[in-house]
């Protein structure tokens, strides 16, 4: 259900963005119109979205050094985190604006919640993080990012290495910071070797565009409890990389299962000592 919803949302958002894409002159009211159409598609019509009310923080560089790997971090304070059902990341002017949607589970924990990832930015754009709380309310933070060409940049600098390593994974728990020894959450990072072809990159040999092929779903668990489910699109950078927090004190290993649009499933797990 949730999967289907997000796939539809991605497709719908892509469609509406392409429609606006044709417009030759970018004007402020067209930007507003673009956001209006995206938010209607993704969150439904007539939903209120509170902006800048301190329920979350969004960190993104004003000027990105590499448009194909723009680092984004969302931090949700401890008091709010327990109520968060879902986090949606949007790069407004990308051909597929919804980067990823994270649906949190029991093992996401009650302490400060953090999600860091890397996104492609195709042209100067607002980057938006929207959280949905369990009362149904939506809260947003927005950052303007100057970067361009991220969706059509060729996959990896060493093209042979890019193809040779598809599916390789790395899951890395971080040692808890000294001052956070008694923190209810700990941090870890999952990395998947995958070109996350955007459909906008050219095959160097044939001169044809490479069809989109990307990691569309990822589930992270601690023991048998879900930390989060992620539904992703082509705006997630190649070699998807997510740094996240999870609840300490739940039995069992951290495990990750990722699936790409070809239906290939990649899994890995790690024992986390002391948590």
């Amino acid at each position: 259900m949730a999967n289907r919803f997000w796939t539809l949302a991605l497709v719908a958002a892509l469609g509406s963005a392409l429609f606006v894409w044709q417009s030759p002159i970018a004007k402020a009211d067209e930007d507003a119109e673009l956001w209006q159409s995206i938010r209607n598609d993704v969150f439904g019509e007539n939903r209120q979205i509170a902006e800048g009310d301190g329920k979350l923080a969004l960190d993104a560089p004003y000027r990105a050094e590499d448009a194909a790997i723009v680092p984004i971090t969302v931090t949700i304070p401890g008091g709010i985190a327990a109520k968060v059902r879902k986090l949606t990341l949007i790069v407004e002017k990308n051909p597929a604006p919804v980067v990823a949607a994270f649906t949190f589970g029991e093992a996401a924990g009650l302490g400060e919640r953090k999600i860091s990832t890397r996104v492609r930015v195709d042209m100067y754009s607002n980057v938006r993080a929207v959280i949905e709380l369990d009362d149904g309310s939506l809260h947003m933070q927005t950052k303007y990012v100057k970067a361009a060409g991220g969706c059509s940049a060729p996959a990896l600098k060493d093209m042979d290495a890019a193809l040779a390593n598809i599916g390789k994974m790395k899951l890395r728990p971080f040692a808890s910071k000294p001052e956070g020894a008694s923190s209810p959450t700990a941090e870890a990072q999952v990395m998947v070797r995958h070109p996350n072809y955007s459909g906008m990159q050219m095959n160097q040999v044939t001169g044809l565009y490479i069809p989109a092929k990307f990691v569309e779903h990822m589930e992270v668990r601690k023991g048998d409890k879900v930390v989060f489910n992620m539904d992703g699109g082509i705006s997630l950078s190649e070699n998807p990389n997510i740094q996240f927090t999870y609840a300490v004190g739940i039995e069992g290993p951290l495990s990750v299962s990722a699936r790409d649009t070809d239906g290939k499933v990649f899994t890995t797990s790690a024992d986390v000592t002391g948590s």
């Binding site: 060409g149 059509s152 940049a153 060729p154 093209m159 042979d160 990159q201 050219m202 160097q204 040999v205 001169g207």
Partner: peptide
Amino acid sequence: HKMPRALTARSER
């Protein structure tokens, strides 16, 4: 031998 591939991929940009 890898140059044409790298240049073709980037030529438009």
